[in-house]
Lab assay of single mutants.
Amino acid sequence: RYTFRTRGPEQMKRVVEWARRQNLSYRVEVHGDEYIIHAE
């Protein structure tokens, strides 16, 4: 189980790509310009 905090969509997309390659399920929360990605 991982939690990532990123700023801006570019970093968020990179984390999502990584999670997909690992076959993890993930969800993204948006708080202003901060993205929180939960993957497991």
Rank of each mutant, 00 (worst) to 15 (best):
R1H: 13
R1W: 11
R1Q: 11
R1I: 11
R1M: 10
R1E: 07
Y2Q: 04
Y2E: 02
Y2F: 11
Y2P: 02
Y2S: 03
Y2I: 09
Y2G: 02
T3D: 02
T3G: 02
T3R: 07
T3V: 14
T3I: 14
T3K: 07
T3E: 08
F4T: 01
F4M: 03
F4Q: 00
F4E: 00
F4L: 04
F4N: 00
R5V: 14
R5W: 10
R5N: 05
T6C: 15
T6P: 04
T6K: 03
T6Q: 02
T6H: 02
T6D: 01
T6F: 09
R7C: 09
R7M: 08
R7L: 08
R7S: 10
R7T: 12
R7P: 05
R7I: 09
R7H: 12
R7D: 07
R7G: 04
R7Q: 10
G8D: 15
G8E: 15
G8H: 15
G8S: 15
G8I: 15
G8W: 15
G8P: 01
G8T: 15
P9D: 13
P9H: 14
P9F: 15
P9S: 13
P9W: 15
E10S: 08
E10L: 08
E10H: 08
E10M: 09
E10R: 07
Q11K: 07
Q11N: 13
Q11I: 10
Q11D: 10
Q11T: 10
Q11F: 06
Q11L: 09
Q11E: 13
Q11W: 06
Q11A: 14
M12N: 01
M12V: 09
M12P: 00
M12T: 06
M12D: 00
M12K: 03
M12W: 06
M12H: 02
M12A: 10
K13D: 06
K13C: 09
K13N: 10
K13W: 12
K13G: 06
K13P: 00
K13E: 12
R14G: 04
R14W: 09
R14H: 07
R14A: 13
V15E: 00
V15N: 00
V15Y: 10
V15W: 09
V15F: 12
V16R: 02
V16K: 03
V16W: 02
V16S: 02
V16G: 01
V16A: 03
V16Y: 02
V16D: 02
E17L: 09
E17K: 06
E17G: 05
E17C: 08
A19L: 15
A19P: 00
A19I: 15
A19D: 00
A19S: 03
A19V: 14
A19E: 00
A19T: 03
A19R: 00
R20E: 13
R20K: 14
R20Q: 13
R20P: 00
R20T: 12
R20N: 09
R21D: 08
R21Y: 06
R21M: 11
R21A: 13
R21L: 12
R21F: 06
R21T: 11
R21E: 11
Q22D: 02
Q22H: 15
N23R: 08
N23W: 04
N23H: 11
N23A: 06
L24Y: 10
L24W: 09
L24H: 03
L24C: 04
L24P: 01
S25I: 14
S25V: 14
S25Q: 12
S25C: 06
S25K: 13
S25D: 10
S25N: 12
Y26F: 12
Y26Q: 00
Y26M: 04
Y26H: 04
Y26R: 00
Y26S: 03
R27Q: 09
R27K: 11
R27S: 12
R27D: 06
R27Y: 14
V28L: 06
V28W: 04
V28S: 01
V28I: 13
E29C: 08
E29H: 08
E29G: 02
E29R: 04
E29F: 12
E29V: 10
E29D: 06
V30W: 07
V30N: 07
V30T: 09
H31N: 12
H31C: 12
H31V: 13
H31D: 14
H31I: 14
H31Y: 12
H31G: 03
H31F: 12
H31T: 08
H31S: 11
H31K: 10
G32M: 06
G32F: 06
G32A: 06
D33W: 06
D33Q: 08
D33P: 05
D33L: 07
D33G: 10
D33K: 07
D33C: 04
D33A: 08
D33V: 07
E34N: 07
E34Y: 14
E34T: 12
E34F: 14
Y35S: 03
Y35A: 05
Y35I: 07
Y35Q: 03
Y35K: 02
I36F: 07
I36E: 03
I36A: 02
I36R: 03
I36G: 00
I37S: 00
I37W: 02
I37V: 08
H38G: 01
H38D: 03
H38W: 11
H38Q: 06
H38F: 14
H38T: 14
H38Y: 15
H38S: 05
A39L: 15
A39P: 01
A39Y: 08
A39K: 01
A39C: 15
A39Q: 01
A39S: 03
E40W: 15
E40Y: 15
E40S: 12
E40N: 10
E40V: 11
